[in-house]
Amino acid sequence: MLNDTHPKSTQKLGIWLLLALTANGALLRLALSLAMRDGTRNPIPAAAIAWALAALALTASLLWLLRSVWRRRDSWALYLGAALLCIVFYKVGRNRPELAPIELPLAILLLAPAALLVWAFVRQVRRADELERKILFQALAFAFVIEFSVAIVYALLEGMDVPRPPSILWASLLVMSWAAGLGIFARRYE
C-alpha cells in the first residue's frame, strides 16, 4: 500500500491469500470450538478432528504460498492481514471456563502469528525509506490517540454500569485505527 513499487499482481495475490488465511483461521477455530462444545468429559467428534486437520493442512499450504509473496516484496496488507488472522484465531468461538487438553497447545501455537507480526513490523520499519517511516509513525500516533481517547471515554463511563467490552476490542481498534491512519497519511503525500 505504501510502497507502490510492488507489482500489482503480487499485491493482489497477497491480499487474496490473506483473506483465505483469515477465513481458514475462522474455520479452524470453529471446528475446534465444535469439538470442544461438550467439554472435556465427552470424546471429541471425529468429524471435528478431521475438519481441524484439514484446516491446519490448508493453513500450512497457504502460509507456504504467502511466503513466496513475502519474499518478493513486503506489503503493508500482510501485517494488517496477519493481525486480523491473530484476532480471528483468538476470538471466533465461544469462551469456556475450563480448558480442554488440546486448547493449551493451541493457545501457544497462536503465539506464532503474533510473533510473525512483530517480526514483520520491525523488518518493514528497517526497510522503509524516510517518507514511508514518517507515514508509518504518523499512523501509529493517530492510532494511539484514537485508542487513548476511546479508553478514556470508556473509563469515564465505567462507573455508570456500561457493559464491559471484550478485551479483543482494544486490539481490533488499534489495528483498524492504524490501518485508517496509514490510508489517511499516505494520501496526503500522493
Binding site: L2, D4, T5, D129, K134, R188, Y189
Partner: peptide, 26 residues
C-alpha cells in the same frame, strides 16, 4: 519516477512527493 526512485533507493511515492513539493527530503 520509478527509475529515479531505484537509483536513490527510495520508493516511487517519495520521489513523487518531493517533485510535487508535498515532502521535503532529509
Amino acid at each position: 519516477q520509478a527509475e529515479l526512485a531505484e537509483r536513490l533507493s527510495v520508493s516511487r511515492q517519495t520521489v513523487n512527493a518531493i517533485e510535487t513539493e508535498r515532502y521535503d527530503p532529509s
